[in-house]
């Protein structure tokens, strides 16, 4: 027994060093798996407050860019206005809109909530974005996040009372399904952890006709995003030897360097789809 105490006393520094290292690595491993580190809740409320003060100052420098993107978003919406279209008299058939306006809420699948970005990073291999709405605004884990110009930003992974943490597309564990706008082939997005704003999509079969500049949109297979949100524009094509698939490198539609405002998408179907999936899992 005495020898054990002597050993601990003699090698106290080495043991302390090893235990702190093991504790750090333990934090890294568990956090990446479950995204629920013990300290994350308190740390988010503390650092979130400091970060939002900083974001208040910082946003002045981006006002011009924010204005431009809002202008574009407004232009897009104006062009969808019904009042701007008229049916020519010569049209053989008149199409009647089947949606009843007065009961629109019944048919609504997605609703959007605006949020301000409190902190953001692109330099790490696992990048997260913090936004200033949380549990009390009805944010839940698994909701999709887009920017004002309909491009995908990421998925909510952690929610506290006043803040939510979004796993950005620039995260090595982020796997969202995407789709080619032209051909309709779907694939899985992965990020290599190196270039911000450049992501790749795999599992696109070699029979697909892809050229540089093609648009990649969200597939609508997950409940997080509606179909047709922009993901990116094809930059380069690689033929994977020994497989029947392309690996496509593309530039993300979102510029992750200057995110200021985002929208969180709430899907009405999310609960139903999740219950259905859970039922399948329960079956032996």
């Amino acid at each position: 027994m005495r020898n054990i105490f002597l050993f601990i006393r003699r090698h106290f520094n080495l043991l302390l060093f090893l235990s702190l290292q093991i504790f750090s690595v333990y934090l890294i491993v568990t956090y990446n798996e479950y995204h629920h580190a013990v300290f994350s809740n308190t740390a988010n409320n503390l650092t979130g407050g400091i970060n939002s003060k900083y974001a208040d100052i910082q946003q002045y420098f981006y006002l011009k860019k924010t204005n431009d993107s809002l202008l574009k978003a407004n232009e897009f919406l104006y062009n969808k206005l019904k009042a701007d279209f008229s049916l020519p008299d010569s049209l053989p058939r008149t199409y009647i809109d089947s949606i009843k306006i007065d009961s629109l809420t019944k048919y609504r699948k997605y609703s959007y909530m605006g949020a301000k970005v409190v902190s953001n990073s692109v330099t790490n291999q696992s990048n997260y974005i913090v936004i200033d709405i949380g549990k009390k605004n009805g944010i839940k884990e698994g909701m999709g996040v887009i920017n004002p110009n309909n491009s995908i930003v990421g998925i909510v992974t952690e929610v506290t009372e006043r803040y939510a943490v979004v796993m950005s597309l620039l995260h090595k564990d982020s796997h969202i399904s995407g789709k080619l706008l032209k051909g309709g082939e779907t694939g899985i997005l992965t990020w290599n952890g190196v270039d911000p704003n450049y992501i790749s999509i795999s599992n696109i079969s070699k029979s697909a006709k892809v050229v540089k500049g093609d648009t990649i949109i969200s597939s609508g297979f997950s409940t997080a995003f509606p179909k047709g949100m922009y993901i990116g524009f094809v930059e380069a094509l690689y033929k994977e030897s020994g497989s029947n698939f392309y690996k496509i490198k593309f530039r993300s539609a979102t510029n992750f360097n200057d995110l200021q405002y985002v929208y969180v998408i709430e899907s009405a179907d999310q609960q139903g789809v999740k219950e259905a999936l859970d039922k399948i899992k329960k079956q032996p």
Binding site: N13, L16, F17, L20, Q21, S24, V25, Y26, L27, I28, Y31, A37, F39, S40, A43, N44, L46, T47, I50, N51, S119, S121, N124, S126, Y128, V130, V165
Partner: peptide
């Protein structure tokens, strides 16, 4: 070592990735 661990952990909490900088600092 303990002070360094806290330095790294503080930076980590700003970056939402616990452990990385703490390990390097220790």
């Amino acid at each position: 070592m303990i002070v360094s661990f806290f330095l790294g952990a503080t930076l980590d909490s700003f970056r939402h990735n616990p452990g990385f900088h703490a390990a390097a600092c220790v």
